[in-house]
């Protein structure tokens, strides 16, 4: 039996004295593709950041691959595509190759050196994502959609087992967005990568993800889409909204 990638127990997160996440319980199994949805300010990004150790926990426990988050060291198993990079400016002198390579060797032991096989791996992932032609371009000079694909390449280049994506499709045009979803579904199916995808769009999540986590500072619903669609509790909670999400689920 494979180790559970993520087990969250009674997680609470406080921000400026207010509770922004309350009593979150969540078990993510290997191979799950979970869509995390909820209204603005519902704590979706906070949950991801808390799980990854970027925000302090007020109480509760986060267990990654059987290890308490504070003791977890095997970060190469994790991939992360943030909502945005806080300090990225147009003039940052890093090209696409350098950014993606950083994702590959960051979790290596010292001395961290790039080998020729690392360079091949970077080239392969850029090719897979259709951005091989951007490899020498400066990241700050790319469009929002191109940047997002580069950051996805950085998140995928070390073949993580557990992938966190925080609203990665916001800057993408509809065609690229569709390609993005199809690609992630393929990664989930063929490489069995476990995916947690934060989105503001439950309808699209219904189409691609296998499970739904609906947050509103606490867990409103967590389970398969079938259970969501047949839950009388969710019918009462969402009204017609439940039908909209389930209608698109194919």
């Amino acid at each position: 039996m494979s180790i559970i990638p993520l087990d969250v127990k009674s997680l609470c997160v406080m921000y400026q004295g207010a509770e922004v996440l309350s009593q979150i319980d969540l078990v993510v199994n290997a191979g799950d593709y979970i869509g995390i949805v909820g209204p603005n300010g519902s704590g979706k990004t906070t949950l991801v950041r808390a799980v990854l150790g970027l925000l302090p926990l007020a109480s509760g426990q986060v267990v990654l691959f059987g290890k308490e988050q504070q003791e977890f060291k095997d970060w190469k198993k994790i991939g992360y595509l943030p909502q945005r990079i806080t300090h990225l400016d147009q003039r940052f002198p890093a090209n696409v190759d350098e950014v993606v390579a950083a994702g590959l060797i960051a979790s290596r032991p010292y001395p961290k050196e790039m080998t020729s096989s690392d360079r091949d791996r970077v080239a392969d992932i850029l090719k897979d994502l259709g951005i091989a032609d951007l490899r020498t371009r400066m990241i700050g000079r790319l469009s929002g959609g191109q940047q997002q694909r580069v950051l996805l390449a950085r998140a995928l280049v070390h073949a993580p087992e557990l992938l966190f994506l925080d609203e990665p499709t916001t800057a993408l045009d509809p065609a690229t967005r569709e390609m993005f979803y199809v690609l992630l579904q393929k990664i989930n199916k063929t490489q069995k990568t476990t995916i947690l995808f934060v989105s503001h769009d439950p309808v699209t999540m219904g189409k691609y993800a296998s499970k739904l986590l609906y947050l509103d500072k606490k867990v409103v619903f967590f389970g398969s889409f079938d259970n969501f669609c047949h839950s009388p509790d969710m019918t009462r909670y969402f009204g017609a909204g439940q039908h909209l999400i389930c209608h698109r689920h194919g």
Binding site: L52, G53, L54, K76, E98, A102
Partner: peptide
């Protein structure tokens, strides 16, 4: 480089 470019990602990468 990783910390300068994106500190959050660097931390999640185990740096």
């Amino acid at each position: 480089f990783a910390v300068t470019f994106d500190q959050d990602h660097a931390q999640v990468s185990g740096i």
